[in-house]
Each structure stands twice: as structure tokens, then as C-alpha cells.
Amino acid sequence: MGFKLLSKLLVYLTASIMAIASPLAFSVDSSGEYPTVSEIPVGEVRLYQIADGVWSHIATQSFDGAVYPSNGLIVRDGDELLLIDTAWGAKNTAALLAEIEKQIGLPVTRAVSTHFHDDRVGGVDVLRAAGVATYASPSTRRLAEVEGNEIPTHSLEGLSSSGDAVRFGPVELFYPGAAHSTDNLIVYVPSASVLYGGCAIYELSRTSAGNVADADLAEWPTSIERIQQHYPEAQFVIPGHGLPGGLDLLKHTTNVVKAHTNRSVVE
């Protein structure tokens, strides 16, 4: 069995187990497998329904001669939608809004960016022009300005110390501490036991640490421990890039980060 097929099978099995364990909360999309990078042309966006009122959005972007996937989250909030992270750029984010209108038909009224990198804030200006209120932590807003990236308009308070959590509509926002970046936030959907790890969490097929220019490698494993301790009931975990899975993604990420750190020390 090929690795790609095995990865998709694991996603399907995880979703099936969740649907059985929580039949009222989960209505997993039966329309197909989780979209992969090879299936999404740059400039297009796919939506994948995880649970009743919960979707991931998947886009792709060219970077350094390669094409990478990027995940975000959409959560229903009454007759409105909360968006977590842009679709990595203005063109993708405009396509995301169009796809949401086509498939869901509810307005996106608020959006949260989970850290300051372009795959999370690139497209904020498109959201703002569409009347979406954009939010991020003060740290993310400051770092985005320093980096020359787009800056969300509103500040999220109460997320300055490791372990801080605040309720934001249908989700809980959690600051686990520094990891992929010093400002990275985690998003949890309690009604569906869905954990969105953003770039602080890796997919299972990833074996290298990737972009760690703004990471705190020493603190990252401790931050992941905080996530595990705060959300032990999480059933569906979405990484910032690639295929979702279960809580095993947290341990896998820790292993990859520690291996990278150990290699760096040896070198």
C-alpha cells in the first residue's frame, strides 16, 4: 500500500471513529477524501466538511520552486461564519470567499490569524475590503508590521502568557507558548472536538522541520505538551499544512522538532 493511500485511509478511519463516538456532533463529509496538494491548482481553494458547521479550507501556493498546501478553518456561528487564517495570499483568499459563498452561503463576518507569517495573514486586506472584521493577538499584529505583512485590524486580548485561553464565538483560542513562531495560536472547536494546530503542528508525513527561522526550538516541545494537557479530548487535529489526523500529530511534531534540534547540535 502506497504512503499517500495509507495517509488518506488514516484520515478516513479517524473521521469514521469520530462519527461513531459522537453521532450528534459529527456529520463528516462523505463526498470524498481530504484534498491534497496535487489536486488543488494554485489560485483555487477546496472546502472539506469535518463536522456539522465545521470545515477546513485548503489552498496551495508556490514557494521556492515548489507547491505547498495550506489549511485553515471555518466555523459556523449562528447565521454567520468565523474564518481562521487566510488562504495564503490575496488571490487565494478572494477564491476562498467565493467558494464559501458557493458552498455554504453564509457571510464571513470575523477572521482570526493564528500567527504573523504570510500563509496566515496574506489576504487580510481582501477580507477587510469584503467587510470582514480581522483579528490577531497584539504580538501577531506587531510582528506582521515588522515583517511588512498585512496586519489584522483588531487585537485579541488575554493571550499574552503561555497557557492563556479565551473564548471567541464558537471557538476557544489558546496560546501554548512559542513553537513554530513566538505568537502562534491554537484554535479548538469544543462542539466538535476539532483542534486546529496551525503551523505549530505537523502532518504525519512530514519528517523535516522546514521553516524554523522564527521558531523557538527549545520551547516548542513544552508548548505541545500544554496543548495535549489542555485538549486531551480532541479527536480531529488539523495541521497548518497537509493531512489531518488525531492527537498523534502532536507527538510526531515533537519528535521531528527534537530530531532537528539534535542534528543542529551535532553539526
Score class of each variant (00 low, 15 high):
118 D>F: 15
18 M>A: 05
182 T>M: 08
152 P>C: 02
95 A>N: 15
150 E>S: 10
201 I>H: 02
130 A>E: 09
135 Y>N: 02
84 I>T: 03
98 A>R: 11
10 L>V: 07
261 T>G: 08
115 H>N: 03
84 I>M: 10
241 H>P: 02
128 R>Q: 08
96 L>P: 02
122 G>N: 15
67 V>Q: 09
207 T>V: 10
21 A>N: 05
112 V>D: 04
142 R>W: 12
102 K>Q: 13
12 Y>D: 14
200 A>W: 02
42 V>W: 15
78 G>M: 09
256 V>T: 08
156 L>Q: 03
5 L>I: 08
220 W>I: 01
13 L>Y: 05
254 T>M: 13
194 V>R: 01
19 A>K: 08
170 P>G: 09
154 H>I: 15
109 T>K: 14
62 S>V: 13
196 Y>A: 05
19 A>I: 14
165 A>P: 06
75 V>R: 03
8 K>D: 09
66 A>P: 10
146 V>R: 12
199 C>I: 00
199 C>P: 01
33 E>V: 07
54 V>S: 04
93 T>Q: 01
77 D>T: 06
147 E>D: 08
37 V>R: 09
265 V>I: 10
95 A>C: 10
107 P>E: 13
173 L>A: 04
179 A>H: 02
35 P>A: 07
3 F>S: 11
97 L>R: 01
102 K>V: 12
141 R>Q: 08
150 E>L: 08
31 S>M: 06
249 L>V: 05
235 Q>R: 08
238 I>V: 06
72 G>Y: 03
184 N>Y: 02
149 N>R: 13
148 G>A: 14
149 N>K: 10
236 F>W: 06
238 I>P: 03
144 A>I: 14
33 E>A: 09
63 F>M: 07
187 V>W: 00
132 V>S: 03
62 S>C: 11
263 R>V: 10
246 G>D: 08
61 Q>V: 11
64 D>P: 14
226 R>A: 11
22 S>F: 06
260 H>Q: 08
120 R>W: 02
81 L>C: 05
168 F>K: 03
38 S>N: 05
253 T>L: 01
104 I>D: 00
161 S>N: 05
34 Y>T: 14
245 G>M: 02
63 F>T: 07
141 R>N: 15
2 G>S: 10
8 K>L: 07
162 S>K: 13
233 E>K: 14
255 N>A: 12
136 A>C: 14
21 A>T: 14
61 Q>I: 13
83 L>P: 01
193 S>E: 08
220 W>L: 02
4 K>I: 07
120 R>M: 03
204 L>D: 15
134 T>Y: 01
2 G>Y: 14
85 D>N: 04
131 G>D: 09
220 W>N: 00
219 E>R: 10
252 H>W: 05
22 S>G: 09
201 I>E: 01
237 V>E: 00
108 V>I: 12
225 E>M: 13
187 V>K: 01
203 E>T: 15
199 C>S: 01
262 N>T: 06
222 T>P: 14
107 P>G: 09
138 P>T: 15
164 D>R: 10
215 A>P: 07
262 N>G: 08
242 G>H: 03
265 V>P: 15
260 H>M: 15
247 L>K: 05
49 Q>L: 12
1 M>S: 03
82 L>T: 10
116 F>A: 15
6 L>G: 10
177 G>I: 01
9 L>D: 07
155 S>T: 15
147 E>T: 12
153 T>M: 08
189 V>H: 15
106 L>Q: 07
52 D>W: 12
245 G>K: 02
62 S>W: 08
196 Y>R: 01
45 V>R: 02
116 F>Y: 15
162 S>H: 09
21 A>G: 09
120 R>G: 13
69 P>M: 06
32 G>I: 06
109 T>L: 13
267 E>S: 11
33 E>F: 13
219 E>N: 06
138 P>F: 07
42 V>K: 10
230 H>W: 14
50 I>L: 10
137 S>F: 03
48 Y>Q: 08
157 E>Y: 09
132 V>D: 02
100 I>R: 01
102 K>A: 15
188 Y>E: 01
49 Q>F: 10
209 A>M: 07
79 D>E: 12
125 D>S: 10
49 Q>H: 15
109 T>E: 11
198 G>V: 04
259 A>L: 07
28 V>W: 12
190 P>M: 05
214 D>W: 10
149 N>E: 10
263 R>N: 15
95 A>Y: 15
22 S>P: 13
241 H>M: 00
144 A>N: 04
132 V>T: 12
168 F>S: 03
171 V>N: 01
242 G>P: 03
184 N>C: 01
153 T>E: 12
174 F>N: 02
91 K>F: 11
36 T>Y: 09
254 T>C: 13
44 E>P: 07
97 L>A: 01
235 Q>T: 13
153 T>D: 07
204 L>V: 13
238 I>T: 03
17 I>E: 05
113 S>E: 04
26 F>I: 09
82 L>R: 02
164 D>V: 07
6 L>Y: 09
32 G>L: 15
131 G>C: 04
84 I>V: 14
250 L>W: 02
142 R>T: 14
243 L>T: 11
229 Q>Y: 11
153 T>L: 06
195 L>F: 04
176 P>H: 03
174 F>G: 01
38 S>Q: 12
14 T>I: 12
59 A>K: 04
50 I>H: 15
237 V>Y: 05
194 V>H: 01
101 E>C: 13
91 K>E: 14
160 S>E: 13
